[in-house]
Amino acid sequence: MTELLVPILTMTALGFLFSSGLVLAYKKLRVEEDPKVEKISEALPQANCGACGFSGCRAFAEAVVKGNAEANGCPVGGEEVAQNVAAILGVEAGEIIKKVARVHCRGTHEAAQNRGVYIGISTCTASHLVGGTKQCSYGCMGYGDCVRACQFDAMEMGKDGLPIIREDRCTACGKCVDACPRNILELHPLSQNILVFCRSEDRGPIARKLCKNACIACGICVRACPDAIVLENNLAVITDYKKIDPEKIPAIEKCPTKSIGRLKEDNDG
């Protein structure tokens, strides 16, 4: 009987000793943490992409609880996550406009003139340093830096040399926008259906010579809708898409190079 009792008592005593030590230490070293942080952190997508402007989902959750960020600050989670976060905080979520990335270039292999053969590191950043593969120095080079930057599998490189964006998967995190050395990608509200598909600031005749689908700054679209479209640096720019009258869309679509207009289903994202 003693043989059995001695080890049991010894271990119990040791365990008790250490646990009381830990309890004392815990009282001294306890870290107060708002339970909301944990809850909000769980409600977030855990992509840790940094699109909210914080270093990760956890940092965003802490910022929201401290009041340094809005409940709808997570662009990846969209409305659903914003509602959940707001519910945890006990505030209204505020409206979220779903955005997606769009490609502002229609310089396909077919439309754009090539400058020459590029042999080198096949990334856009590297190619851009030596002027790119196309004659147009504003257009997409098609090496897919944006596709590699996408964490959500929402992009792929199309056969025509332009990236394709899958609206349903795009979370508007903006990684592709940062990755593109030529600033061809931009985030737009999903509902915005009129876009300028060109970034070329070359003068009209040159732009047309280099790419069939380039904006030549003829001004047809500006005359159709002067409130919302202006010409800047030989390029049509939509200043406020909400002011575009739907009835005027056919007039805008008279664009001779089709560099402004509605999205097509095929490959403009």
Partner: peptide
């Protein structure tokens, strides 16, 4: 280890 963990966290 528990002790070290609490300490580092603090």
């Amino acid at each position: 280890v528990q002790l070290v963990e609490m300490f580092i966290r603090k």
